[in-house]
Design a protein around this nucleic acid. Sequence first.
DNA 1: TCGGTCTAATTCAACGTTGAATGTACCAGC
DNA 2: GCTGGTACATTCAACGTTGAATTAGACCGA
Lengths: 332, 332
Amino acid sequence: MAQPRVTLADIAARVGVSPKTVSNVVNNTGWVGAEVREKVLVAIEELGYRPNLAARQLRRGSSGVLALALPTLAEPYFAELASVFVDVARDRNLTVLVSQTGGSRERELEALDGTGLPAIDGLILSPLGLDAADVEHRRRDVSLVLVGEHGERVAGEREHHVGIDNVAAAAAATAELIAQGCNRIATIGVQDEGPTETSRDRFDGYALALRRAGIELDDSLTGHVQEFNRAEGALAAQRLIDAGSVFDGLLCFNDSLALGALYTLGVRGLAVPERVRVMGFDDIADGRYSIPAFSTVAPGREALANRVLDIIASPDKIDPGHHEVPFSLVIR
Amino acid sequence: MAQPRVTLADIAARVGVSPKTVSNVVNNTGWVGAEVREKVLVAIEELGYRPNLAARQLRRGSSGVLALALPTLAEPYFAELASVFVDVARDRNLTVLVSQTGGSRERELEALDGTGLPAIDGLILSPLGLDAADVEHRRRDVSLVLVGEHGERVAGEREHHVGIDNVAAAAAATAELIAQGCNRIATIGVQDEGPTETSRDRFDGYALALRRAGIELDDSLTGHVQEFNRAEGALAAQRLIDAGSVFDGLLCFNDSLALGALYTLGVRGLAVPERVRVMGFDDIADGRYSIPAFSTVAPGREALANRVLDIIASPDKIDPGHHEVPFSLVIR
DNA sequence: TCGGTCTAATTCAACGTTGAATGTACCAGC
DNA sequence: GCTGGTACATTCAACGTTGAATTAGACCGA
């Protein structure tokens, strides 16, 4: 595998020009005659030259690599977010290095610190365990953008954060259910411990929409969960039904919960959407292929990724603090 | 963001030693007195020095970065595979750069070529569009390991491939269903076009197990799909049931198909596992949280990742060709 | 006293690339 | 014949780090 590297100097020697001229050909810089350029290109092809990016980076000072640190790729929401980041970054000639923190403060600090990562131009962090003080003494030679609801709290006024307005999104989703004729809307996804920002924001939006529509909040329609996964969704739906709660709309705080709930509804003979209209959150691929279909809130991942990369490109020209990107409702 | 970088020389100047001594402290190399070491560490802390990894890499010749190129992170199987790779690599002080090819030959070639990627020590590629000739003239300065069923075909005898024995796995899964008392086992996941290696191997294993058990293959129990997702699974199950096929076991060629099929079974009142036992493939997280639970084939992702990294660590000492890792059945 | 073996720290050069500065040759215009 | 411009190419140094070789002193035994 490890035959000696072909360098600019090798090409230069073969063609009989200076290394700098070869460099000029490779980078389309400076002046190079057509004849020389041609010869250089041929030699590059023949010897199989590829630029040494470490050297280039050392010289230029930037690497074209971004780190994306998120809790885990095993959750579809994050996996799809990562997927979008990788693609969007690619369009800008950047590559993304994905690392997983497991949501632990310790590993989030490591990511902030850059331990173990190669040289990066920017860090995108979706924290769960960090607090605001932690980001205060981060290294300052890498630009940082936080994402996620917990990230918003951590970012404060001094750091960049990009995200949707969760309260407004949940309110819009709820309002849509109301507009479709639901007036007893249950919710699944209220969390009572851990980093509960997401859960709280979405519940606030739900409550807001009900209030606006003049519908009273009914505690018996609130489904509590510990985590946002399919099993919890299925169980929460079971509990609601077993408790005798009757509902014609169901707002799940993410799509995995919704997929779990759908199963229970199916087994219990509650037809979707005839008897119960279901709304999820996140627009994950799995939800798009669900039968029966359910509506969801699409968080505008492309917009988010682009906004984040804009900020990383010129962090000083953009004011720190919260940056909002639009969400949209996907009605199915 | 961009204050001037702190270098070894800065630390050296402040402490009054040579840069090399500071380097020795940082890397625990050479001889450094306890007193000097302490002073250096203090200075590093005070000035906030962090090694320039581009320079280090240029000097050392290796980057500690691996590229993992797979079709898409949006599919849970690949997302979880990536997740495992990132973690396993971390244990070895390596970082993983994830790129997505979308399964297109063109972008797989780009990955092989390294275009746009920073300097990497190894490439792990899960191809779908490539053919064997394509890997022949790849760059040889980076070690390559292929994964996935299509990867196996592409690898041939000359390249490294790591994976499970799909035929044996499908046979074992089918045998397990038979052992549990099923004698009419339907299958969902036969593909008729595209890169169908996976589908074919798994069907072969299924057929093999039936033959061994003396059960005749019944075409009416074969569910065809275009892709491996939930909706196709649900639809295929519908078609089987609507066609009047009666079955007491269901082998789905991946967990997403199984999850889709489960929904249909639930709606049609076919209790799982009382009436129908369901077996999936891949052991994705979503399946672990499924209600009702279903069994699956766990492809041994950790073992696979470790094997791959072993090969990348010393590609020349290990014979190229197919390397098998164990699978296991997860009975739920 | 001399050489030998430690420990501790240094010097030097090189990894491969590219910005800035500089050189050369040729031609046009006055 | 001199100046100025254009087209092409070169030299030089530096990015920050570290392996190899070297130095310097301290200590030890003969």
